[in-house]
Nucleic acid binder design. Sequence first.
RNA 1: CGGGGCGUAGCGCAGCCUGGUAGCGCACUACACUGGGGGUGUAGUGGUCGCAGGUUCAAAUCCUGCCGUCCCGACCA
Length: 574
Amino acid sequence: MRASQYLISTQKEPPAEAEVISHQLMLRAGLIRKLASGLYSWLPLGLRVFRKVEAIVREEMDASGALELSMPVVQPAELWQESQRWSQFGAELLRIRDRHDRDFCLGPTHEEVITDIVRNDIRSYRQLPINLYQIQTKFRDERRPRFGIMRTREFCMKDAYSFHLDEASLQKTYDGMYQTYSNIFERCGLDYRAVIADTGSIGGSHSHEFHVLAESGEDAIVFSDSSDYAANIEKAQALTPIEDAAAPAEIMLQVATPGDKTIDQVCKTLSIEPRQMIKTLIVTAPDADGQHQLFALVVRGDHQLNEVKAQHALQLDNEIGMASEEQIYKALNCAAGSLGPVDLPITLVVDHSAANLATFTCGANRDGYHLRGVNWQRDCPTYIRADIRNVVTGDPSPDGLGNLTIKRGIEVGHIFQLGTKYSEIMKARVLDENGVERVMHMGCYGIGVSRIVAAAIEQNNDERGIVWPDSLAPFQIALIPINLHKSEHVKKTAEEIYAQLTAAGYDVLFMDENKARLGSMLADVELIGITHRLVIGERGLNDGNIEYRHRRESENRLIATADLMDHMRQQIHT
RNA sequence: CGGGGCGUAGCGCAGCCUGGUAGCGCACUACACUGGGGGUGUAGUGGUCGCAGGUUCAAAUCCUGCCGUCCCGACCA
C-alpha cells in the first residue's frame, strides 16, 4: 500500500477522553473514531488489524471442524420469551419495536436463534455433533461503556454453538474448543490464562474464561501459588472453616456513633479493627412476578461481597443489585450505614467468616447507633450460612494446594457447557439410534474479536506507540525513503523494493509521499506499530546498504541491498 | 442508576469570575527556505462558543431547563 493513496490519520496528542493506554493509542494512531458513547468506527488502518484477528479466529475455528454461518442482529421477541430471557436479561437487552408494533431486540448473543435453526434442521443423532459459529456484530446496552473499544455497546464477537446427543460428546467438543482458543490467543501473541468461571446470564454448568493479563483489566483472577488452579474471583470458593456458633462472651451494648457511615469511621470511633465488625448489605432482585424483594447479606468488615455467589446462595435466577437508600429506608426505617442483622425482618445470609465471629460490632438498625458485643447464637440465631465473599490474597486455594494470589485480566474468550438449558425449554430434540426422542446438549463459545485488538495493545506498547505482535500488525513492513523527491537513486530503489516485497506477498506500507520528512514518517510508523521497517537513503545506498529495524529494537541493522529479500524472509517467517 | 467533571475550529486548550472585536498551539492550504528523528518563515482556510429559553441596549461570559460526553461509584452500611 502506498501511503499517498491511504488514510493515515495520526495525532500527536491523545484526546482528553481517553484514559487507558490502548484507547489513547487507538485514537492517536487513527485506528478508530468514536461516533457516540460505546459506538466506534474502524478506520482503514484499524480495520486491517481487526481483519487479521478475525482471520486467525476463522482459520482456527474452521480447522476445529466448526461450520460458519450468519444470523441476524435483529431478533424477534418471541424467541426470547420462549427461552424466558426476555424477562431475565435486563436492561442490556436493547428492545425495539417495528412499524407493526412488534417487539424485537438487538442480539446480545444468539443461543435462541441457533437453537431455533437446529431444532428445525436437525432431526437425527446421525447429524450430531455439530458446531456452528459466526463472526458478527453484537449489541449490549452496557450500563457504562468504557475504555474505548474494550467495553462498547456494539462490538464484534465470534460466537459458536455446539449440539450433542450426550454429555460425553459435549465434553469432547468443549475440550476441543479449549485447545482451539489456546491456539487463537497464542497466534495473536497474547499473554493469556484460562480460568474457571461463573456462567452468568448465559447459563449452564462448566465454563472457562480466557483472560489477557493486564493491569487495566476489569476482572480479578485468582491463581494458586503452588498448583495450576486459576479462577475468576466471582467463582473462587473461599475455604473458610466452619466453626460452631460461639457462646456469648460479652454483654450486647448499644453505642452512639453519630455521623459514622462507613466501616472505617465506625472503627475509628470505637477503636476497633474492621475484622471485628460485620457489614450488612441490602440487595434486591425481582421475583417471578417482577416484584422487588429485599435480602440482607452479611460479610466481615474487612471482606467484600461477591454478588455472583450471593445470587447463587439466594437461589435467584435474576441478577441482584444493591438496594437504594430509599428502598432501605422504606423497608427498614434506617439509613444504610447503621444496619445490622439483629432483629432484621428480612432473609439473612451470612458469610462463613462473619458467622465464625464469636463477638462482633454491627449497626443497630437505628440511625447513628451501633451494637457492640453481639453474639450470633444469643442475639441473632436465625440466618443462612454461605460463602458469599470474595477471596483475598493469601486465602487457601480451593483445590487444597497452596495459597491464592490475585491479578487483573481482560476477558477475551469464554466457553460454556450449557447442557440442556436452552434445548429443553425450546424443545430442540433429535431421535437417537433407538428411535427415542432426546433433548440435545449444547455448548457455546465466545471470543471478543474487537476486544482482542485493544487487549493486544494493552500488552504491547511503549512510549512511542503500539508494538504489534507480528500476526496482528496492520502492515508487516514499513518502507521509508529519505528525500524521495530529490534522489533518483532512492526513488528507483524504493520502487523496486516495494515491488519485490509486494510480489513476495508481504503487506508493505510504502511511505511514498513526496516531501514527507523522515522524522514524521518514523514517528507515524512507530505510533502505528508496524513491526519491521526499512529506511532507504542516498548514503546507505552508496555503500550498498538498506537500514532495517524491528519495532522492538533500538538499533538499525545494515542489510546489503542484494540480501534484503532473504533477510525479510528470515525476519518474518521465523 | 447515584456522585463529580467537561462541552469554544479536526485535536489539545485559554477566554467566563468582572457581559461589549472569538483567541492560542497542533493539524490543514499556498509559497519559500530546509532536508537522516514530529524543521523555519510568510500568507491563509476553518467556529450557529452543545441545545432551548430567560435577563440585558448587548450573552461564549449571568440565570433556568435540557442534551451530550468522560471519570468515579454502585462493596455504602
